[in-house]
Simulated assay, not measured.
Amino acid sequence: MVKGLTEDVKLVRIQQEQYNVEMLKIQEENAKLRKENDNIKKENQEIKKELTEIRRNLEVIDKENRKNNIVIQGMKIRTNETGTIIPQVEKFIKDYLEVEAKVKDAITLGTNVCLVKLENGKDKEKIMINKTKLGKIPNEKIYINDDLTKKEREKQNQLRKKAAEEKKTW
């Protein structure tokens, strides 16, 4: 009986040594995986930083591309062809705002909405100064605004909502 127990103890020790060896392998593999995970986390953080910087740069580029643009809302547009919209927009600006502006491009964005790309910032400045003259047009509501980036529009909408909520509390 003692001999049987001795054999059982030897067998248990052999199994325990095998488990210990397997456990060491698992621990080493676990350490490797943790190190890889840490490296991946660092790479991920670097990529996030780069992405944030790229987004900032794109926002600056987008804003720069839009700096000479305006959006006209409420103007009756007679056609969707760019070639005929430009003279129509130039005539509208000259007739109603009394500004000689050179339009580089004009694109319809929807019913009675037009994106106007001007040749230079001085023309845009004159238009923005004189846009108050639009209020004198009878039976029409025409608005001229800056061409804003998506981020700027979202911020503007948030401010409008906040102002409306504050107005309600009065």
Rank of each mutant, 00 (worst) to 15 (best):
E29C: 08
I86C: 05
L24F: 11
K10I: 14
I77A: 05
K63C: 04
E53R: 09
K49W: 01
N68R: 07
I72P: 02
G83A: 09
N65M: 06
K32E: 12
I70K: 06
L5T: 13
I77C: 07
I61G: 03
V21H: 08
E28F: 10
I77H: 05
L58P: 03
I14V: 15
K32F: 09
I77K: 03
V2G: 12
G83H: 01
M23V: 14
T84A: 01
K10S: 14
Q45H: 05
E22N: 14
E22T: 12
N20L: 12
I54D: 07
R66F: 03
R78E: 13
V2W: 00
I72Q: 00
I70R: 04
I86T: 10
R34I: 09
K91R: 13
D62C: 05
V60C: 01
K32V: 11
I85C: 03
V89G: 03
K42G: 01
R56A: 08
N37M: 01
E7T: 15
Q73W: 00
R66L: 13
D38Y: 07
Q88D: 12
I86L: 06
K10T: 12
L58F: 01
I72K: 02
N65F: 04
N37I: 06
Q27W: 05
Q16D: 07
K41Q: 08
K35Y: 10
E7F: 12
E7K: 15
I54L: 13
T84S: 07
E81M: 04
L5C: 13
Y19L: 15
R34N: 11
N69M: 02
L11Q: 14
K35M: 10
Y19D: 09
R13C: 14
L58E: 06
K63M: 07
I86N: 02
T79G: 08
E36M: 04
N37Q: 06
Q27A: 14
K42N: 08
R78H: 12
G83V: 06
T79E: 02
R55S: 09
R34E: 10
L11E: 15
E59H: 04
V71A: 03
Q45M: 08
N80V: 13
Q16W: 10
E36P: 03
T6M: 13
K49S: 01
T84C: 00
T79I: 07
Q88N: 07
R66I: 08
E59W: 00
K49Q: 04
V12Q: 13
I72D: 01
E43S: 02
K67G: 05
N69K: 03
I70C: 01
N80L: 13
K63H: 08
T79Y: 00
G74C: 02
V12P: 00
I72W: 02
D62T: 05
V9A: 15
I85M: 10
Q18R: 12
V21C: 09
E50D: 06
V2T: 09
T82S: 11
N30Y: 10
K91A: 14
R78M: 11
E64Y: 09
I47C: 01
Q16K: 11
V89S: 02
D62G: 04
E59L: 07
N80E: 12
K76R: 14
